[in-house]
Every structure is written in structure tokens, then in C-alpha cells.
Amino acid sequence: MKWVSKDMDMYLGAKEYVDTVVLPLLPISFGDDLKQTASMTEFISLLTIPLERQFKGRLMMLPGYTYLKSDSDDSRLQVIKHWETEFKKSGFKHMIYITSDSGWRTIEDKCEGTVIWLPSLPLENMDEKYRNSILEDQIGQLIHLFVKKWQNND
């Protein structure tokens, strides 16, 4: 489900079925990597839509955590830790972060949840048909990852 009030009604009625929370990590920078961070954010935001549709009944897709690319690892980690306490308190068993920012790879071991890192693709230069097929490919892999994760923890 998405973070909209209509879906929250569903969530409140079926809490025990929703055990996964997904937080997209979206970098923002106004420096040299302005375009790069924008394309990372765009790519991940595009991916979350079909992913949410596929697993509507089991995962909660949050609107995404935007942070400044210049933030230090420590401060970012602290925020994630804060999110995690809150997630666990709310009864989520699986915490998944999806991002294109490679900065998270160095601190992913320190997070309790799983960081899924996907290299962002230059979608701006592709025609729509090609773009959709590439996105579908990525989504297929993501779906596989999620199902596997659920099976292993059951």
C-alpha cells in the first residue's frame, strides 16, 4: 500500500498481513552531482510504483526519505536507526531500503534492514518503449528478491 489515507484504512484493517516496509532513499544535492542525484531519485521513484502494485497487500511503500548527499555517513545512519526503532515498534518484520546512491553500500552492514542498491540508468535518453522494458526487467529482479526474502524468513 501507498502512504495515502485510503490505503491506511486498509492497513488498519489488515495490520497482521502487512509485515514489510519499504523506504526509498533519495539523495539530493545542488553541487556538481545535481543531475546525477536527480536521476537517482527519478529512477528509484519510478521503480517504486510497480513494486507497490505487485505487493500491495503485504508491503507498505513509504514516500521516501530525502537527504542531502553531503550528509555524513554517521548522521544518515542515525536517522535510519531512528526509523528502524519506529518500524519495529509498529510491528514490521522486514525493513527494506531501495536506493541508487552507492554511499549506502558502505553503511549497509550497520543497518538492521536490507539495503537494495540498484545502479541508476540514464532513462532520460531512452525512448519510452525501451525504457519500459528495462524498467520491467529491474522490477522482475526486485520482485524475485522480495519473494525470496519472505520465503527465507517464514
Binding site: 500500500m1 486498509m10 489488515a14 498481513y17 502494485r53 505487485q54 505487493f55 500491495k56 497487500g57 503485504r58
Partner: peptide, 8 residues
Amino acid sequence: VCKHLGCT
């Protein structure tokens, strides 16, 4: 669309 909670 699954009739349970709307997954695919």
C-alpha cells in the same frame, strides 16, 4: 488483482 489485499 488478488481479492485478499490487492497484490498481483
